[in-house]
Design a protein around this nucleic acid. Structure first.
Lengths: 231, 231
DNA sequence: ATTAGGACATGATAATTATCACACGATAAT
DNA sequence: ATTATCGTGTGATAATTATCATGTCCTAAT
């Protein structure tokens, strides 16, 4: 968790157009002055469930998991998020404490702005507020739709779904390094670790994927898609 | 689906304070002029998945289900909503077509306002926009949290969870008439109809509930809660 | 160097859930 | 009146998933 960025490069920020598109250049430099950038190594916790929400946070770079702890302290994973799928947005306007934890899975950079400042901006600039709303809706809609998809599949279908998700949405490559453990996959799809491992092993035996530890190579995407669809 | 309400009684509306609290009396009478009220009988469809979103809709009275159709045309139920848990909000700002269907389970009254008008209000009145955001976040947070709860439970725990939900959140009574079929319960908790029936039968045999068709009487709420928690 | 713990892996067995078959009553359609 | 359909209900059996046991490999801690 290392402090960064004194210089104001917000106008260079790739994310600027995404949800600051309705903020003028002068206002943007104001934001630039007060924003803070932070880096997190894989495994580091960005946000801890139960903490008060003080900052508005968005993902600039990296990959994170959103999770929640059950009463018997097991972890349930809600979603994985990359830049543009926002993070702190979820509970920001419905609660004053975080309902979910956020943990880095890959080296991650976030940008933080004091929440009160964002609220003032939103009150002054309705188009900005509308943009925020769209982002909230999109992020939560994704989570809800994805969870529905997973719910209707069986073990193999769920694991296939996840592999396709990483290949197509996160890495844009049929070969990638799993950024999560087998247990995390289990916590996400709602099955046991053993069964996740078994499903992966079967995919390997059926020559649908190759496995070298965390490295996955999808050999037969078509079959994986069929399994995800019918499973 | 019967047209209603010419007279402007928005200032009498119980919901007014909830999300129109930042709209002045003069603006409110403008809204009142353009709003439309509609009634739906149980089983009638308020919103059909795939339809364009033209109206901003909120529940004034009644009970609805939010659902989505899978590719093999099975129904998945996302949530049940009563007034204050908003409805059309979900996809309103993230898409221009509805991603979910909404169906009345009990006699239901909705209030509709042209979406463009609402957007103009939101742009003019930032506090109103902030209120809207809170509502969206709350509604979606509820769905996400509830689905997580269900995910970690087994068959009996899920059925118990649903019974408690109806008793405590919808009817405020340990005795109530199920507003849904056994199949709809199954579509909600992600199990088969037969197993939902079996779970209910077992609760009956164990004297935890009484069943007269759709009428349910919870005899032992404590035991039901234990089942919901541990199940 | 040794120990402890965690991630990955596999097999055996138990528990849970789905599927199929059948039945009955109510209701809608003709 | 009769057929068809749907919701409810139960039992038998099959399929799926969880649990428990065990082992290996790797890494962190001492």
């Amino acid at each position: 968790m290392e402090e960064m960025g004194k210089k104001c490069d917000c106008d260079q920020c790739q994310l600027k157009t995404l949800f600051f598109s309705h903020i003028g250049t002068d206002e943007l430099s104001d934001i630039c002055e007060i924003k803070r950038e932070e880096n997190f190594a894989p495994g580091e916790i960005l946000i801890n469930e139960g903490e008060p929400i003080r900052e508005f946070i968005y993902l600039k770079e990296g990959l994170v998991k959103l999770s929640k702890r059950t009463k018997n302290s097991k972890e349930q994973i809600l979603s994985f998020s990359k830049p543009f799928d926002f993070v702190s947005l979820l509970s920001v306007f419905s609660s004053d404490i975080y309902k979910y934890s956020v943990t880095a899975l890959q080296p991650t950079t976030i940008c933080m702005i004091n929440l009160e400042v964002v609220k003032i901006f939103a009150q002054r600039n309705a188009m900005f507020a509308m943009d925020l709303m769209s982002r909230i809706s999109e992020a939560t809609d994704k989570i809800i739709l994805d969870n529905l998809e997973i719910k209707r599949k069986n073990l193999k279908g769920r694991v296939a779904h996840l592999l396709i998700y990483f290949a197509d949405n996160i890495f844009n490559n049929s070969e990638f390094e799993l950024p999560v453990s087998r247990r995390e996959i289990a916590d996400y799809i709602g099955m046991t670790t053993e069964n996740v491992i078994r499903a992966l092993s079967e995919f390997r035996k059926d020559k649908i994927i190759k496995i070298y530890g965390k490295d996955i190579q999808v050999l037969d995407m078509q079959r994986l898609e069929i399994i995800s669809e019918l499973g």
